[in-house]
């Protein structure tokens, strides 16, 4: 069952409900305006601080793009190889399980010691936030390849390079996209946190700065942007997956 475009918009209803409740809370004056600015004030903040918001958004976005890009370039080939070769899996499994349990946020102090304040520590942390989901999902994807397909390749005398490129990689691609989705989400969480501590630009920095300069509407504006971009990023990854794995359509229960 594929929902109609109009039906998809139903997903906006809870968000609209939230804004209504927010407006109601403001009118009931549950919190003073310095804590809870009215929705229109926040909307106004986009006009007031538009340039600032844009600049910081781009800073955050580019860090995530670089960090996740690096995580993809490292994690996916590693995952393909680890998934394909059992001895490599035995070699790496314990290390992966150990390091992936460390939340990237907890590495902020160390990242600052090593890389100071700026882009580098943030990108390193985003890289780590994205690496594990990409790596683990890639490995998982390789493991789920139908045995018959590998037999076809073996019977044909296919080289290992051909097997990796024409079989292992496409077979793992849907799972890699699952990893990418998680990585982008994790990277986006990490960038905001890292920017509150280790960087002097970006949405996280902007929000913290707004707090210290008593501009609650800018805090809220920042939160809105973070949420909106999170939604959009997820949307884009899904789109990309549908495009790259179009062969999967009709194999899946639901065409979404």
């Amino acid at each position: 069952m594929v929902a109609s475009p109009l039906g998809r918009l139903a997903g906006l209803l809870p968000l609209i409900g939230l804004i209504v409740a927010w407006q109601a809370a403001v009118m009931a004056q549950i919190y003073p305006p310095v804590l809870l600015p009215a929705p229109h004030k926040v909307a106004n903040a986009f006009a007031l601080y538009g340039g600032d918001i844009l600049h910081n958004t781009l800073a955050s976005l580019s860090r995530v793009a670089i960090g996740i890009g690096l995580a993809f370039v490292v994690g996916v080939p590693m995952g393909l190889l680890i998934g394909r070769f059992a001895w490599l899996d035995r070699l790496c499994d314990w290390s992966i399980q150990t390091f992936r349990s460390v939340p990237p946020i907890s590495l902020i102090p160390m990242a600052m010691l090593f890389f100071g304040i700026g882009d580098t520590p943030a990108i390193v942390l985003i890289f780590l936030a994205g690496l594990w989901p990409l790596l683990l999902n890639t490995i998982f994807g390789v493991r789920t390849i139908e045995r018959t397909l590998l037999k076809v390749a073996a019977a044909a005398g296919a080289s290992e390079a051909l097997i990796l490129r024409d079989i292992v990689w496409p077979a793992a691609l849907p799972s890699i996209f699952t990893g990418l989705r998680l990585a982008v989400g994790g990277g986006w969480l990490t960038v905001v946190t890292a920017e509150m501590i280790a960087v002097k630009s970006g949405l996280g920095y902007m929000i913290l700065n707004a707090q210290m300069t008593f501009r609650p509407e800018l805090i809220f504006a920042g939160i809105v942007v973070i949420g909106a971009i999170g939604l959009l990023a997820d949307f884009s990854v899904q789109r990309l997956r549908r495009f790259a794995c179009s062969w999967q359509e009709g194999l899946m229960v639901q065409g979404r």
């Binding site: 139908e146 018959t148 397909l149 037999k151 076809v152 073996a154 019977a155 044909a156 005398g157 024409d166 079989i167 496409p170 077979a171 691609l173 794995c245 062969w247 999967q248 194999l251």
Partner: peptide
């Protein structure tokens, strides 16, 4: 595998992609 033989599998073994 010998290059002189080729296999046809029961579950066809086609690459879905």
């Amino acid at each position: 595998p010998s290059p002189a033989t080729a296999i046809v599998f029961q579950d066809h073994g086609l690459f879905p992609w």
